[in-house]
Design a protein around this nucleic acid. Structure first.
Lengths: 338, 338
DNA sequence: AGCCATCGTCGAAGCGCTTCGACGACTGAT
DNA sequence: ATCAGTCGTCGAAGCGCTTCGACGATGGCT
C-alpha cells in the first residue's frame, strides 16, 4: 500500500501538498495538482482511513442502528437501510451497522471510540432509554421516529398523525361514517413504538373532528388474530362500512377472511391501508393506500446528519406529509345508504 | 475524551503498560492491572479506533456486502445480516455495510483504505466479476454462495444440490414418481445466482438417479407467473403428483391457485419447498420444507473470516447439509395409485 | 555464590495523515 | 518604487495508539 509520502515523492512535492490536493483546503496550481493526481492514480493510492480519522477527527462513517430481530416490518427496515447506505455513499460516507439489541452500550462504544461521526437510529420507543445516552455523545444523532422527549435531537418520519387523518378524510369524503381501525399487534403498542401511538391518536382526534363513528383494535399476527380483531370491531360498532388498516401483516389474512365471509372489497366494505406501496399492490385487491416513504425518510435522515456535521441549520422535527394513492379498495357510498 | 496517556497518569504507569493491560500481550502484575482498570473505568476511557487501526493495522471491522435492492428474498438477506452482525460482535468486531451495487469499486475502496480486516459477500453470481478483485486484496474474504471459480476463496452456503436431492428422495419415498420443479424467477437464473443453478443441477441429477419423471420451470413473480409456470409444468408432464418449490414468492399465489382450481394440498398434490422455516409455517398449509439456515450460514461465514484473520486453517468450501422438516403438505401415495 | 530466564515495566519510535505557521513569489493598488 | 495581500508550497508538529528493545528485579538452577 503506497502512502502519501510515496505519492509526494513520485510527484516531486511535499506530503502536505498532496493532502491539500486531496482535500482542496488550500489553493494548488493546476500543474501541481495534475502531477499529484497522476501519481495517485499510478500508484493506486488510497488514504488510510485510520490515519485520516486520527489526524482529522472525522471518520466519514455513520452508524445505523437497526432492529435486526426478524420482526414485523422486515421489508420496511430493509428499505430504510438501503436508503441510508445509498444516501451516505453519496456524501462519501460509509455505514456501520449496529443492532438495536446492543442498546445503549453499543452506541457508546462506537461513539466513544470515535468509529463514527454521527448516528441514525430507527424503531424508537416512546420513552426510549437510548435518548439520554445519545444526548451525552459528542456525535450528533438523527432519529427515524418521534419519541416523547426529543428536544435537541433531530427526528425524521412520516407524519403518522396526518396519515390517519388523511385516511379518514378520504373515507369520509366517500360517504363512510362508521369506520374501524385494524391496528398493529399489541406487542407494538406495548413497546410504545412511536408510530403506532401517533397514528392512533391522529385517528381518534380526526374521527371526532370529522364527526365519525369509529372503533379501534390492535390485531395479533396470523389469521386468528385478524379474525378476533374483526369480530371485536363488528361487535363494538355495527354497520361498519370501511376499515383503516395500519398493519401490513394483517392485510393478507384480512382479505382472505373478508372473502371467506362473503364481504366483498370494496362493494361491501372499503379499505384504506398504510404500508409500503409495493405491499399494497401485491395483494388480491389493489389497495388504496398511504405510502410509507421509507426511501425518502432514510435519505432525509442522512441529509440531516450531514447538515448537523457541517454545522448548517436543521429543522429538528421533520414529519413528511403523507400521500394517499387511490386504487381499488374504496367505494363511494351513495347518499341513500348513508 | 480521555486518552491512553490520561489513563496512564491516573494509574501512575506508562502508556505502554496501559496498552498491555488492554491487549494482554505482556504479563502485567495483578495490582498494576487493577489500578489501570480502575483508571479506565473512572475516566470512561475508550481507545480511539483510528489510532488503534493506524498503529496495529487492524480495524476490528468486517465489511458485509449485501444486495440492498428491494429484491426477492428480503427476509433471508435480513437473516444473514443479523447473523453476521451478531457473530461479528461476539468476536469484538463491527460490521460495515456495503451495497452490492457499488460493485468492485466499493470493495477496493474499503480494502485499500484499510477500513476493514475482512469481507463477507452474499448473493454471488456464477462468474462474479468481484472475485478477481477480491483475490487482489490484502484482506481475506468469505463468500456466502459458490461461484464457478472460487479457488483460494472461502465459501459457505447451504448445499443446494443436496437439498434438491433430499426433496426428491422425500417425495420418492412417499411414492411420488412425477414431480415438477417451480424454480426461481428467470431473472435469478439470468443473473446466474449460484444457488439457483446448484439446486437445478442437483434436481436434474437426482431425478435421473432416482428414476423419476420430472419437469422444471422458472416462475415469474406474481399470480400470473405462477399460473403460467404451473400450466407449463402440467402441459409438459401429466399426472404430476408433487411439486418442489424453490421460490418463496411463488408459494402464496401457488397455494391460492391450487385451491382455486380445486387441487387440494396434500390430498391431490404434495409440496416440498426450500425456504426459511418461518415462511413455510406462515401459509394456509404448513409446508414440508427444507430450511434455509441463514443464521447458521451467516455465523459460519464470520467464524471463517475470524479463522482466516488469525491464520488458523479453514476448509475453503463448507456446504451445510440440508435438513427437511415434515409438515402437512406431503402425502403418501398408496401403491395402487402409483 | 553466580548465572540465566522470566517477569513487569518503561521509553521511544513510528503508524499515515492533517493542519498550522512560515515563507518566497507575485499581483495590484497606491 | 513600495506595501499589503494573495497564491502556492513546504516543514514540522501532533493526532492516540501499539510494539520493540531495554532494563532492573526476582527466582530457580547449578
Amino acid at each position: 500500500m503506497p502512502t502519501i509520502n510515496d505519492v509526494a515523492k513520485a510527484a516531486g512535492v511535499s506530503p502536505s501538498t498532496v493532502s491539500y490536493v486531496l482535500s482542496g483546503r488550500r489553493p494548488i496550481s493546476a500543474e501541481t495538482r495534475a502531477r499529484v493526481q497522476a501519481a495517485i492514480a499510478e500508484l493506486g493510492f488510497h488514504p488510510h482511513a485510520g490515519a485520516r480519522a486520527l489526524a482529522s477527527s472525522k471518520t466519514n462513517v455513520i452508524a445505523l442502528v437497526a432492529p435486526l430481530r426478524v420482526d414485523v416490518n422486515v421489508p420496511v427496515i430493509m428499505q430504510f437501510a438501503t436508503a441510508v447506505v445509498t444516501a451516505a455513499r453519496s456524501y462519501n460516507h460509509d455505514v456501520l451497522l449496529l443492532t438495536k439489541d446492543e442498546g445503549t452500550a453499543g452506541l457508546e462504544r462506537v461513539a466513544h471510540s470515535t468509529m463514527v461521526d454521527a448516528l441514525i437510529l430507527m424503531d424508537l420507543e416512546r420513552d426510549d432509554l437510548r435518548i439520554p445516552a445519545l444526548r451525552k455523545l459528542k456525535q450528533p444523532s438523527v432519529l427515524i421516529g418521534l419519541p416523547a422527549d426529543h428536544t435537541g435531537i433531530a427526528c425524521v418520519d412520516l407524519d403518522f398523525g396526518a396519515a390517519a387523518r388523511l385516511a379518514l378524510e378520504h373515507l369520509a369524503g366517500h360517504g363512510h361514517r362508521r369506520i374501524g381501525l385494524v391496528g398493529p399487534s399489541p406487542a407494538v403498542y406495548k413497546r410504545q413504538t412511536t408510530y403506532a401511538d401517533r397514528f392512533l391518536t391522529g385517528f381518534l382526534e380526526s374521527s371526532v373532528e370529522l364527526g365519525l363513528r369509529t372503533v379501534t383494535h390492535p390485531c395479533e399476527p396470523g389469521a386468528a388474530g385478524v379474525r378476533s380483531a374483526l369480530a371485536d370491531l363488528d361487535a363494538e360498532l355495527d354497520g361498519i362500512t370501511a376499515l383503516v388498516v395500519h398493519n401490513e401483516e394483517a392485510l393478507r389474512p384480512l382479505l382472505d377472511l373478508l372473502r371467506a365471509t362473503g364481504r366483498r372489497v370494496p362493494e361491501d366494505i372499503s379499505i384504506v391501508t398504510v404500508c409500503p406501496r409495493d405491499v399494497a399492490m401485491s395483494l388480491p385487491v389493489n389497495l388504496t393506500s398511504i405510502d410509507i416513504p421509507a426511501h425518502d425518510v432514510g435519505t432525509l435522515a442522512v441529509e440531516t446528519a450531514m447538515r448537523l456535521l457541517d454545522g448548517r441549520s436543521i429543522e429538528f422535527t421533520r414529519l413528511l406529509a403523507p400521500s394517499l394513492v387511490e386504487r381499488d379498495s374504496c367505494r363511494e357510498i351513495s347518499s341513500s345508504h348513508r
